[in-house]
Design a protein around this nucleic acid. Structure first.
Lengths: 345, 345
DNA sequence: CTGTTAGCGCCTTCAC
DNA sequence: GTGAAGGCGCTAACAG
């Protein structure tokens, strides 16, 4: 049942070298020989052992996918996109979830685990410390980042500054001027550029409008629903002059929505909220958001590593567009101050 | 930089066989030799090539993880649990997402892709057709299922019938008798046992109470938020005598929550809702649910394949307990009929 | 306990 | 265009 290459060679009446060449579509095989070998191999159900092939050739046809989380929206979608794209061209995906330490310390990556196992590396989501990038580089394999990453290596992502400017401009176009911002804690993820850039975009767009951003208009918290909820609660209690919120992720925006509801604040009548991501749930909740393609980012990154492996030239920076999706959480600013009914829950 | 086993052997003044034995902790090496080899190897930064090792030994130290989705709650959490557990013991995870065809047809798995690449297989989430299981079996490697699967192979999961009985009993204990059920469409996933079993549990618990389940009390739809929303809308409009809903997943339950809100139905004053899963968002939404461990299911399944690979005996069925988590969406039944304010949205 | 010797299954120069 | 032969880097008998 489990045939080897020489079984095929014997059955086809040729040498193993010819079988190998024919099966991989190499040029120096006559058309009729190739056809014959192919049919014999197919008939026998022969498939070359990926291990033996990898050992002999040095190419594993495998990509290492490094990610801190597989169970979060952005990450799992990017992974799905990358996996599909790679499998389509016969590449395998080795999944490595490396832990982000609780205390906000460096995520630890062990390059030895990848040594001689992969042809290329995809780093999804978090940028690595310089030392970690260096250690990965010792593997001598192409590396592509998604989300944000290291210079020296291609990055696939979105233009966070621009998308944020656009979001805030949209709020302004509705008449808002006192626009707050909720984002993730910069301590834990200092090198994670999206939050930084989104904040920059917020500031920029306010400046454009001649509005001076009050430091009391921004709030940091965890980058999830709960974090968004807490941040929103603090923010709304502290700065009742705010009429709209630009929130750096949909999950945090949903938290803000919950906080508003608990405080008796109507959305969008009393408060407008816009998020970033295009999370599926946003659609159901009716959240206005800047939607980013995620599966496509994964697929594109996959294509980039493959290009690098093949020695083709690639762009160092692939930027996807985010798209404003207007739904029910944004509207004209209210008149008068905000009445917070039950801030302490 | 990239040393081979004979570099180490030479440097340590022993044979390659001894190096191999020492490094893998085999018994027949003297303590001092082993120590010496280990230190030399460490000093040289030597790591055996997994490929060469796999080729020579027939063991790849790799597990193939088959899943239809990596970006859905249950799946991504199971994957995360399995990956962590496997990596801890030095096993790699090859990720294979096989498409579930749109029209509800058989998911397609190609065993050839896994041939000679893995020591064992984890099937996450969906059961395979018998023919597919057979084809996987030709690989001659242990297979473990998670969620629901094929007999003949170990399954890790929860007791869906029991958990559902418990959920409905809880609603009864609050005074409910007219308890509806929302679940997933059985056409698409006929072999997917959880929905079937949860429905059975619902019927059983009603019967226990001497309540005859009206067929109009149940509704099928897609197994996600949107599906739950649609199902709830239809159900509430049609059967206003219902005072509580047992929903087969948290995501569908959240959809039901949204539907209720849009219809002007207060939860839990007018309607009680209980879900199944223990989704993170449920906590924030205040959804009462039967919470199941997911990461643990992944980790346990991983342990099972490893046991099978090692030739250890294993249980054919590992059942985890689901736990009732009471939150804000369940309460005493209302008096009188349900008033649906705006059923068409 | 340790060394020697064949492979594992394929790829890849190098001749022809 | 095709074949022969030597690895790729390690493991696994088999001796000793």
């Amino acid at each position: 049942m489990a045939h080897g290459i020489d079984d095929v060679a014997r059955a086809a009446g040729v040498s193993t070298a010819t079988v190998s060449r024919a099966l991989r579509g190499m040029p120096n095989v006559s058309a009729k020989t190739r056809e014959h070998v192919l049919s014999v191999a197919a008939e026998m159900g022969y498939r070359a052992s990926p291990l033996a092939s990898a050992l002999a050739s040095g190419r594993t046809h495998t990509i290492g996918l490094l990610t801190p989380w597989v169970n979060r929206w952005f990450f799992s979608n990017v992974i799905e996109g990358a996996e599909r794209a790679l499998r389509e061209v016969g590449f395998d995906v080795l999944l490595y979830s490396f832990a982000v330490s609780e205390n906000g310390r460096t995520p630890r990556v062990d390059p030895d685990v990848l040594r001689r196992r992969v042809d290329g590396i995809l780093v999804v989501g978090l940028p690595l410390e310089d030392t970690e990038v260096r250690s990965l580089e010792t593997l001598g394999k192409p590396i592509v980042f998604i989300g944000s990453g290291s210079s020296d290596h291609p990055i696939v992502g979105i233009d966070d500054v621009r998308l944020s400017v656009e979001a805030v401009r949209y709020l302004r176009s509705l008449g808002h001027r006192n626009i707050g911002h909720i984002t993730g804690t910069p301590d834990d993820l200092r090198r994670w550029t999206p939050p930084v850039d989104r904040r920059t975009g917020w500031l920029t767009a306010l400046e454009e409008a001649g509005v001076e951003a009050d430091p009391r208009w921004e709030e940091f918290g965890f980058f999830d629903i709960d974090g968004g909820k807490e941040s929103a609660r603090r923010l709304l209690e502290r700065s009742p002059e705010i009429t709209a919120l630009f929130v750096a992720s949909d999950e945090m925006a949903m938290g803000a929505l919950l906080a508003a509801r608990e405080c008796g604040i109507r959305v969008p009548e009393d408060l407008s909220i816009i998020g970033v991501d295009g999370h599926e749930i946003s659609e159901l909740v009716g959240l206005t958001t800047m939607s980013q393609p995620v599966v496509a980012q994964g697929a594109t990154a996959a294509a980039l590593v493959l290009d690098l492996i093949a020695g083709r030239p690639v762009d160092q920076h692939v930027v996807f567009d985010a798209e404003l999706v207007v739904r029910g959480t944004t509207g004209a600013p209210r008149e008068g101050p905000l009445r917070v009914v039950n801030p302490a829950l």
